[in-house]
Nucleic acid binder design. Structure first.
Lengths: 229, 229
DNA sequence: AAATTACTTTGATATTGGTCAAGTTTGCTC
DNA sequence: GAGCAAACTTGACCAATATCAAAGTAATTT
């Protein structure tokens, strides 16, 4: 067991991009309205329909947001990574959560009470701007997911995903590590795991990628984008 | 041709829910940064990839937001009705439009310059709150659409839609008028028009609904929700 | 290190919903 | 109101992808 250094909450908050630039008294206010949460891999944070207490800020770890289906399966909507937030839209609307949340890695997060958050926003137009920007990005991403899922074929969806995972300068060749298990990625792309596996097989067969566990090497991005399943 | 009475822009703005409660000087500011637009049914307002000048407010008419597909078809993402806004998320992010917009009815809208809108928000925390709430609702709706489209069968999607169109008190029997053409509704549900037609046929055959053009009478909501393809 | 569990791959089959084509109805234009 | 274009319906067929089953790998626990 590691000896952990646990800094005060206000310091943890001050290090998050969302709260950069807030004054110490605002940070203290937020900290007073916040709770720390620690989850082990696999633990469920909340379920669709639960009451929403506030905004979640993931400091470390990984959280999976997914829609449950009547048959007990689920569709992954979004993977939250360190520094990410979720639940703010739901908190503002006073609605129950529309998704399930489960830790896919041991995680450490902070739950910021919604009332406190609202008063902090009242006091800081900059925080409002950042929240607005963050929601806008979420909306934009969700629309992209919708685009991917509803007007592309299975191969195009996978190619689109590999393309999005490319480094910023988009070299024609690069390596990437899948952010989660293949079944999870498949679910995000609205594919059965078997289909995902087969598509990777086709791309490998066409000499466009090399797969090694969770690591994928893209050999020819330009040609891959034109690949037709 | 009708004789139109054209009230000043600031008055038009003051009547919109989003701007209710703003002071006259803020309204005047917004009005100065706004342009009126009039579109005829069928006219295109903007296309995916166009630069975004600000937030659109639809005062009258109907606008279709849709994702174009490589094959020239499109997937309807959202139908805007009178009083609705769109483009604000894109304006905040300084990104090009992610969708096409086309008038499906003769429409009158106001385009509010993004910089002006941002300064108005700076001045009015209430406006910020409303914008945040509006984006949150959009996000929530989009998630619901995703749910509908990705984990339900064609019949369930149609039933879900008919259910959403029920009056607020959810009586077991009610009548509704489709908000747009059947092909447009079908596209929103991610269905081919033929499939939509067939599903309505099945539901009619099962004695659950009666269809008459764009008017649909739901005869037994409870039983319909349990209907299985 | 062995055992158990979860994840992934591969093959065979089934099903849903899309596509194409033709006919019908609706609604708009002149 | 006649004519035309667009929207809708119906049927036959097809293709994409899910499902089921089984075997093979990797990862985790004990």
């Amino acid at each position: 067991m590691l000896t952990e250094i646990r800094p005060p909450l206000s310091e943890v908050l001050s290090r998050q991009a969302l709260f950069k630039g807030l004054g110490p008294e605002e940070l203290a206010l937020l900290a007073r309205g916040s709770r720390e949460l620690r989850l082990q891999r696999g633990e469920i944070l909340f379920q669709k329909g639960d009451e929403c207490a506030g905004m979640h800020l993931l400091v470390m770890g990984q959280i999976k947001l997914a829609l449950p289906s009547p048959q007990g399966t689920e569709k992954v909507v979004h993977m939250i990574k360190a520094g990410g937030t979720f639940g703010e839209a739901v908190a503002f609307l006073d609605k129950p959560y529309p998704v399930n949340a489960q830790a896919t890695q041991d995680s450490y997060l902070v739950l910021v009470d919604k009332h406190i958050l609202l008063s902090a926003m009242e006091a800081s137009p900059m925080l409002s701007r950042k929240m607005l920007a963050s929601l806008s990005i979420r909306l934009h991403d969700l629309l992209e997911d919708m685009e991917t899922c509803s007007l592309r074929t299975s191969s195009q969806r996978v190619i689109c995903f590999l393309n999005q995972m490319a480094p910023a300068d988009k070299p024609n060749q690069y390596e990437l590590i899948l952010p989660s298990s293949k079944q999870t990625v498949a679910s995000q792309l609205n594919l059965a795991p078997e289909t995902f596996s087969r598509v990777l097989g086709h791309l490998t067969g066409a000499g466009l990628i090399q797969v090694n566990g969770r690591s994928i090497r893209v050999l020819d991005l330009a040609r891959m984008r034109n690949f037709d399943g």
